[in-house]
Amino acid sequence: MLIRKVSNSDIDPIVRIYNHYIATTTISFEEQPVSTEEMTNRVESVMSLGLPWIVLEQDGEVRGYAYANQWKARSAYRYTVEPSIYVAHEMTGKGVGRALYGELLEMLKGAGYKNAVGTIALPNQSSVALHERMGFKKVGEFNNIGFKFEQPISVGYWQLELNS
């Protein structure tokens, strides 16, 4: 497994990974597939803020990606980020998520961020387990705040203090 900074050639695999979750799960609250152009804009937006976007490559293929974005735009939140991680569905449960998250969190610590706030559509036991394995603690939940596939969805928040 190789974890590295995202490149332009990674956009199509990232789109494939993400669109699977849009189409088949409530993990993402998006309901329409994302285009290559839209994903390119998202990657550029994250990178323009100096935040990390990384991919995990195995056997020459992108198997997952992770990035951090602003938690909120106001300056008082400048030391808090919201990490996101997506793993190719056929690679779940094989350590890809843990490897990506470990690298991303180390990058964020090294950059001086103080907190990471993970947002998880519920139920999602595998994401909850991953976050808690990485040291995150549940800090809140909004019940039935989203609606996808004709069903209400709750959202939980997990926080990790990166640097005190």
Rank of each mutant, 00 (worst) to 15 (best):
W71C: 02
V117L: 10
Y18A: 01
W71G: 03
F149P: 05
M47H: 11
F142P: 08
G140F: 05
A68R: 01
I11T: 14
A116N: 05
D12H: 12
E106R: 08
L108F: 05
A121K: 11
D10Y: 11
S75E: 04
E30G: 07
R133H: 14
S154T: 07
P13D: 03
N124Q: 08
A99M: 12
G93I: 06
A88W: 03
G118W: 07
L100N: 01
A88K: 11
T26R: 05
E150F: 08
Q125Y: 06
R4L: 11
V62D: 08
T40Y: 07
N41F: 06
S164Q: 13
L56N: 12
A99C: 05
M1V: 09
A73H: 01
T26F: 10
S126C: 03
I85D: 01
Y101W: 12
W158V: 07
T40V: 03
A88G: 04
G112L: 01
I153T: 05
A121T: 15
T40E: 11
R98V: 00
N115V: 07
K5M: 06
S7D: 11
E132R: 09
R78I: 02
A99V: 01
A23W: 05
H20W: 15
K72T: 06
Y113N: 03
F142I: 01
I120R: 04
V155S: 08
I3L: 10
S48C: 06
E37K: 11
G97K: 06
E57M: 08
L105Y: 11
